[in-house]
C-alpha cells in the first residue's frame, strides 16, 4: 500500500513540473499585422448571470458565430471583490494578447474606494461597445414632477428626501445621483442614501418607505407604462429612442448640465502589444456594425457607444478625474 501511495505522490510531482510551460504570443506577419493563434479567453469578473457575464457571453457568441474572429473565445468567470479578483487575474497575464475582460464604471469606482489594487490605468483599453444611463424614479403620486422640484426641496434640507440604490455608497447607483444632484447645487455630503443589495429598491419606492430610487433606465420602463412610478430625469446626453423611453426627460434639458454614462467595453492585460490592440479594435468595430450584434443590443436594450482604444483611454481619464473629485468631496475616497 505504502509503495503504491508513494508512486502516486511522485507522479503528482512530475505532473506539477510539466504544468509550468507557457503559452505562445500569437503570430505577427512582416507588415506587423497580428493574428491570434490560440483561443482568446474573455474574463467576466463576476459569476454567471450578471451584466458583465451576459455582455462577455454575447460578444463571444457573435465573434464566433459570425466568424469575425477565427478562434474560440471561451468565457471565464472570476467572481469576487466587486470585480477586483477578476482584474487581479488579468493583471497577472501581462502582455498576453489572448486575454481580455469586460469592464464598466466599477473599474474606476472600486479602486477609488480603495477596494482594488488595479484600476483602468493598469489595463489596455481595446474598445467600448455599450452605453446605459441612470434614471431617478419616484412613486407616481409623489409631490415632485421633475428634477428641479426634487432638488429644490433637497437644497433646503438634503435630509428630507431618502434615496435608495442597489449598491453601497461610492458605487454606481449612488454616484450617478450625487453627480447630477451636485450639478444642481444640492449639498451632496449630507444625503440620506440607503442601499438595498437584495434589489428591494423599487419595492421600497412603491410602498413609500423611500422617496427616490436611483437605477438603470431599462429597469423603470414597465413600471412607468403601468403608471406606478414616474421618472424625474435620466442621465443621458439627449433623449433616448423608443416607446416610453423617449418620454424620459434628461437632466440637461431641465437645466442641469451633467450626465452619467454606464459604459461597457473590453480591456486587455497590461502592456498588450500595439499590433494586437489594432487587431481587436478592428474586430470590435466589425462586431459593432454586425446585424447579429445590433439584434442582441436591441434585445437587451443596450445603447450603442463605440470608442476605439485611444478615444476610450481619454474618455476613461476624464471619467476617473470627475469621480475622484466627487469621492474626495464625499469623504469616500480611500487608500
Amino acid at each position: 500500500m505504502k509503495k503504491l501511495f508513494g508512486t502516486a505522490a511522485a507522479s503528482l510531482l512530475l505532473v506539477t513540473a510539466a504544468g509550468c510551460g507557457n503559452s505562445s504570443s500569437g503570430a505577427t506577419d512582416e507588415d506587423g499585422n497580428w493574428t491570434p493563434t490560440q483561443p482568446i479567453e474573455i474574463t467576466a469578473p463576476a459569476g454567471p448571470g450578471g451584466g458583465w457575464d451576459t455582455t462577455a457571453r454575447m460578444v463571444s457568441q457573435v465573434f464566433e458565430e459570425e466568424e469575425i474572429i477565427d478562434q474560440r473565445l471561451p468565457v471565464v468567470n472570476k467572481a469576487g471583490g466587486g470585480g477586483a479578483i477578476g482584474w487581479a487575474y488579468i493583471a497577472g497575464q501581462e502582455e498576453s494578447p489572448h486575454h481580455m475582460f469586460v469592464g464598466s464604471p466599477p473599474l474606476i469606482l472600486v479602486p477609488l474606494n480603495g477596494q482594488s489594487e488595479y484600476s483602468h490605468e493598469d489595463f489596455t483599453p481595446l474598445a467600448n461597445v455599450i452605453a446605459d444611463y441612470g434614471a431617478f424614479v419616484v412613486k407616481a403620486d409623489a409631490e415632485w414632477d421633475n428634477l428641479n422640484d426634487l432638488f429644490d426641496d433637497m437644497k433646503e434640507d438634503p435630509q428630507s428626501v431618502s434615496i435608495v440604490g442597489t449598491s453601497s455608497p461610492g458605487s454606481m447607483d449612488h454616484m450617478q445621483f450625487v453627480k447630477i444632484a451636485k450639478a444642481a447645487g444640492v449639498d451632496v455630503t449630507n444625503l440620506k442614501y440607503i442601499s438595498d443589495p437584495e434589489s428591494g429598491g423599487l419595492t421600497s419606492v412603491l410602498n413609500g418607505s423611500v422617496d427616490v430610487f436611483t437605477t438603470g433606465v431599462a429597469e423603470t420602463i414597465e413600471q412607468v407604462r403601468a403608471g406606478k412610478v414616474k421618472v424625474l430625469g435620466i442621465t443621458a446626453e439627449e433623449r433616448l429612442e423608443g416607446e416610453v423611453l423617449s418620454d424620459f426627460p434628461t437632466a440637461i434639458e431641465q437645466g442641469i448640465d451633467e450626465t452619467f454614462i454606464n459604459w461597457r467595453g473590453f480591456f486587455g492585460p497590461p502592456g498588450m502589444d500595439e499590433a494586437a490592440v489594432t487587431y481587436y479594435e478592428e474586430k470590435f468595430k466589425e462586431l459593432n456594425d454586425s446585424e447579429a450584434w445590433i439584434e442582441i443590443r436591441e434585445k437587451y436594450g443596450w445603447g450603442e457607444m463605440y470608442m476605439d482604444s485611444e478615444e476610450y483611454a481619454a474618455f476613461l481619464e476624464e471619467e476617473a478625474e470627475s469621480m475622484q473629485a466627487l469621492l474626495d468631496e464625499l469623504g469616500l475616497a480611500r487608500e
Partner: peptide, 17 residues
C-alpha cells in the same frame, strides 16, 4: 495550474487508496 481532470483523477485515486 495542473487542471481539473488530472488533479481530480489523482485526488480521488490517492485519497481512496
Amino acid at each position: 495550474m495542473i487542471g481539473f481532470v488530472v488533479m481530480t483523477t489523482v485526488f480521488i485515486f490517492v485519497c481512496s487508496l
